[in-house]
């Protein structure tokens, strides 16, 4: 079955470059920039990217937020349900909660960074929260296993 071709915007680098057909001012900061003030402040420059890239970036942000929320739930549960004995339980709970907040904040920073990079046609920023989550998760798991087995 023949599928209709995807729009050209899906095949470029994820950036919808301005074309001669575009009305003037479609770029950021132009006189016809009809975006909200928050969007103009966070993304002052560049061109509107392919919507699919922005939607994928949004889903990645949501996925990281859910990871942060899961860490926070684990932190609260360890203390509230007394999963592991004291001493050490409160410290593990606090560390998990801090890690969850860090991941959530990092998710937002990364979402902005990717959106800006795509708007400007620049390389995507490195995922700095990924190693933080990996190292934090590994250390936390080792500590929890030690506290349970001791």
């Amino acid at each position: 079955m023949a599928h209709p071709p995807e729009p050209q915007a899906a095949h470029d680098a994820g950036r919808r470059d301005a074309t001669p057909q575009d009305p003037p001012g479609q770029g950021a900061g132009g006189p016809a920039d009809h975006r909200g003030s928050l969007a103009r402040r966070l993304f002052p420059d560049g061109e509107t990217p392919d919507p699919r890239v922005s939607l994928a970036n949004e889903r990645t942000f949501l996925s990281w937020i859910r990871t942060g929320l899961a860490l926070q739930a684990a932190g609260v549960a360890i203390e509230a349900f007394a999963v592991i004995p004291e001493p050490g339980r409160k410290a593990v709970a606090v560390l998990l909660l801090l890690l969850g907040m860090l991941v959530s904040g990092g998710a937002f920073v990364r979402w902005i960074g990717i959106e800006r990079a795509v708007r400007l046609g620049q390389p995507l920023p490195l995922p700095l929260i990924a190693p933080v989550l990996g190292i934090g998760g590994a250390v936390g798991s080792v500590v929890v296993i030690y506290l349970i087995l001791r």
Partner: peptide, 25 residues
């Protein structure tokens, strides 16, 4: 082929996650 990203839902969701984390702490 045009999409104006609205950052407000993301900002509010981040604020909610931070409130939950701070309350948990």
């Amino acid at each position: 082929a045009e999409f104006d990203v609205d950052p407000l839902p993301m900002v509010l969701l981040l604020a909610l996650a931070m409130v939950l984390g701070a309350a948990g702490l």
